[in-house]
Simulated scan of single mutants.
Amino acid sequence: MAYTLYLLARSGEPVAQRVILQLIEAAMRLDSAISSAPSGDGVGWAAHEVSTSQDLGEQSDDPLLDLFVPRTGGGPILLQVNTRPGAVRQEVDGALRNGAPGPVAGSDTLIELTLSGHTTDWLIADVISSVAMRLWDAVMYDEELGFDISFDEHA
């Protein structure tokens, strides 16, 4: 089952390919174990698969993880950036209807992190979302918890 984490941001950049590269490069400066591979792009959107070489068994105290899941990095996280004005505006409008904080109103960029697989590398998601928050005042949310989300629930 996949889990998607969303960030609405004010990047000021209309070219999604530039936004995603800036985001990935900043994340890689924070964590050298992060790697990225392009997985598609088009007008107003770009996607990369982001992964890490770290052993996810070190993040968990679950003994079943050692028995059933190979001790390797988790599956890649799909990072998507969308700067198409209509798509971003639709997401902003929905977020505002659901109680989004004020900074969301000026957003021009939608960032999506899709996590799936047996093991999830929450550290990658945390690094990428922290970078987006620092660079562009991004606001994070998901469909279940809304805007009351933090990585403490997943640690």
Rank of each mutant, 00 (worst) to 15 (best):
2 A>G: 01
3 Y>F: 14
5 L>G: 03
5 L>M: 15
8 L>K: 04
10 R>Y: 01
11 S>K: 07
12 G>T: 02
13 E>R: 06
13 E>D: 02
15 V>C: 01
18 R>K: 06
18 R>A: 01
19 V>F: 10
21 L>G: 08
23 L>R: 14
24 I>F: 00
24 I>L: 06
25 E>S: 04
28 M>R: 14
30 L>E: 11
30 L>N: 05
32 S>P: 07
34 I>A: 00
36 S>E: 00
37 A>F: 05
40 G>D: 15
41 D>H: 12
42 G>V: 11
43 V>H: 15
43 V>T: 15
46 A>D: 08
47 A>L: 12
47 A>I: 11
50 V>D: 03
52 T>A: 11
54 Q>F: 03
61 D>I: 13
64 L>C: 04
65 L>D: 01
66 D>I: 01
69 V>T: 09
71 R>D: 06
71 R>Y: 06
71 R>S: 08
72 T>P: 01
77 I>M: 14
78 L>P: 00
80 Q>P: 02
82 N>T: 04
83 T>K: 00
84 R>P: 00
88 V>R: 05
88 V>Q: 05
91 E>Y: 10
92 V>T: 06
99 G>T: 08
99 G>W: 07
102 G>Y: 05
103 P>F: 09
108 D>N: 13
109 T>N: 09
111 I>F: 11
114 T>G: 05
117 G>S: 12
118 H>C: 11
120 T>G: 10
121 D>F: 13
122 W>Q: 06
125 A>R: 13
132 A>I: 12
133 M>R: 15
139 V>Q: 14
140 M>H: 08
141 Y>E: 02
145 L>R: 15
147 F>Q: 06
148 D>Y: 09
151 F>W: 04
151 F>D: 00
153 E>K: 14
154 H>C: 04
154 H>T: 02
